[in-house]
Design a protein around this nucleic acid. Structure first.
Length: 550
RNA sequence: GCGCCUGUAGCUCAGCUGGAUAGAGCAGCGGACUUCUAAUCCGCAGGCCGGGGGUUCGAAUCCCUCCAGGCGUGCCA
């Protein structure tokens, strides 16, 4: 719709002012801040005033007059310093609803041009413990981004990167081994920097029961390695099942260890070396990230010959890009923001465009209970797990809360609020709107009222201000989805659904849908079913259910 | 010190690729259920958009500067 308006404005301006020539004008069509200014507005005249050497009002007046006859519009007016305001006829708005009926479940989806091959990598938590709420936020955002990008017409794959090798894993193995020794009656001292959580004891207990004797008989080194493997498997299994319960599924689970097994770490570094971005200095090997705007170069192979975590990351992204993605999206905790320049440097050094890597940062989640901050520490084991939050507030509320703020700003997650079955809980507000339409459908069915089709509805019956407002919002949905995807900002969709629900609740409270006047009744019924469709599709993109009744 | 992010109503936040009188939820006050679900709706109140300067016809939005807070600044992951 917006595009049609834009095209009309552009054509009219060019006709009125031939001196503008054939080039695209790139006029901006917006939604006015106030309803009395109409449905759409453009500031094109204000912008062109300087080029045309005419007053903005003069330009706007001429353009508006030329557009007045366009059947698309009910009225076109010049206003203020030189805005052109457009009001569409109720009939035009109604015609837009045909698409809702035609597309059904896929209403809101669009075909981006160009359609890109995109990978979204998210969560990627070390398998050293259960997922906590912070991971939950990353999971909700990453998963929703993938859904949004698909809906916007891209080809999307999701991936979880498993850090299944390295120092943290050794610490995990040793933590379990020590607990195992402890459980078998030995006296141990458990270091502070090892994993303190109770789940470590649980794993050790199971290992002791199943193969305790063999493990205890082994060389310590080997036993620790066995403990590590068993623990990582078990924890990863738990992570998968937590994510499953959260409605998050990955197309691929990618192992860091596999990068070494396949020799990709060496190959990637060799590639960079050939391109001239690897330097030897102070007995270590460095990636010349300072040549790409990073503060300094970064070590990839340490003096002792071990590769750094960064080397794995290089290899991982080397692998990703070789798989042919046009765009790679990494969802990271905000505390990793300092790594963006060096990663982008890697991408550039490998011959890709830095913009082909987008990093979405996820800020901290502060859990609140009874208004008090719940303190968390991963190492100390005093964190609240995603599973606990899911058990307490449910999947829908959890996802909604994680998604309702911009991901790069810290989030206060009020457990009591999310759990409350009351009007204070924003997720119900949207779901309730859906359930109310379902309820109307139920009543209609009982009364033998048929479901109206677009072709049978008389648009004149739904031309009130409230009804036009609903129609406008409904027709805006595909644009919101496309924008949320393009900006990688799921919260935009959340706000939109909240607004649409608000408009609907208002309408519902003031206008009875099923009434004796069959024509009006059918028209209203059709309209609210379109609202239901949008809420349903929108919640689906957020991974939230749309209940029939509440 | 340097870098990134943030500062908008009592609280939590939208709005930030410049537009007309800055929005929402919660909290507060006052109203609306014999009618499709009151988990709803209506009304009232609440703001030097952190301070200052600049660019512009026009700034919450862009630039500079200062202040406050968070994070980062490892041959850790």
């Amino acid at each position: 719709m917006k595009d049609q308006v834009r095209k009309a404005v552009e054509e009219s301006l060019k006709k009125q002012f031939p001196e503008l020539g054939g080039k695209s004008l790139d006029v901006a069509v917006d939604y006015p801040t106030q309803e009395r200014f109409g449905d759409y507005t453009t500031n094109a005249a204000l912008q062109l005033a300087a080029t045309l050497k005419k007053s903005p009002r003069e330009i706007a007046q001429a353009a508006a007059a030329a557009l007045a006859d366009d059947p698309l519009f009910a009225s076109v007016e010049m206003a203020g310093p030189g805005f052109i305001n457009f009001t569409l006829s109720p009939r035009t708005w109604f015609e837009n609803l045909r698409e809702v009926e035609e597309k059904g479940e896929s209403y809101g989806h669009s075909q981006a041009t160009p359609s890109k091959k995109i990978q979204v990598e998210f969560v990627s938590a070390n398998p050293t413990g259960p997922l906590h709420v912070g991971h939950g936020r990353g999971a909700a955002v990453g998963d929703t981004l993938a859904r949004l990008l698909k809906a916007a017409g891209h080809q999307v794959e999701t991936e979880y990167y498993i850090n299944d090798i390295g120092r943290q894993m050794k610490v995990l193995g040793r933590s379990v081994y020590l607990r195992l020794l402890e459980l078998s009656g030995r006296k141990i001292t458990f270091p502070d920097d090892h994993y303190q959580g109770e789940y470590i004891r649980d794993i050790a207990r199971r290992l002791l029961e199943e193969k305790g004797e063999r493990l205890l008989a082994m060389e310590e080194e080997e036993a620790i390695e066995r403990c590590r493997g068993a623990a990582a498997n078990e924890i990863l299994g738990a992570i998968r099942s937590d994510l499953d319960a959260f409605g998050v599924h990955f197309d691929r689970w990618f192992s860091e260890a596999s990068l070494f097994e396949k020799g990709e770490v060496a190959a990637a570094l060799e590639d960079l070396k050939k391109r001239g971005y690897i330097v030897e200095r102070d007995g270590a090997t460095w990636f010349a990230s300072s040549r790409f705007g990073d503060e300094k170069d970064r070590v990839v192979v340490r003096q002792d010959g071990d590769t750094t975590y960064f080397a794995s990351d290089i290899a991982y992204h080397w692998d990703k890009f070789r798989r042919g993605y046009d765009l790679v999206i990494d969802v990271w905790g905000a505390d990793h923001h300092g790594y963006i320049p060096r990663m982008k440097g890697v991408v550039a050094a490998l011959g890709y465009k830095p913009e082909q890597l987008e990093v979405v940062l996820i800020q901290l989640v502060n859990l609140l209970r009874k208004g008090e901050k719940v303190s968390m520490s991963t190492r100390g084991g005093t964190f609240v797990t995603l599973r606990e939050v899911l058990d307490e507030v449910g999947r829908d509320a959890a996802r909604y809360f994680f998604l309702m703020r911009r991901s790069d700003s810290p989030l206060d997650f009020d457990l009591d609020l999310a759990r409350s079955q009351s009007n204070e809980n924003p997720v119900f507000y949207v779901q309730y709107a859906h359930a109310r339409v379902c309820s109307i459908e139920q009543k209609a069915k009982e009364a033998g009222v048929p479901i109206p089709a677009h072709g049978q509805v008389d648009w004149r019956r739904i031309a009130s201000a409230e009804e036009r407002r609903l129609m406008k919002k409904i027709s805006r949905f595909p644009e919101i989805v496309a924008q949320s995807a393009a900006h990688l900002e799921p919260h935009r969709l959340v706000y939109f659904l909240h607004e649409l629900s608000g408009d609907f609740h208002h309408y519902y409270n003031h206008t009875r849908v099923l009434i004796d006047d069959a024509e009006t009744s059918a028209a209203r019924f059709f309209l609210v079913r379109c609202v239901k469709r949008v809420i349903h599709n929108g919640l689906a993109l957020l991974g939230i259910t749309a209940p029939q009744r509440m």
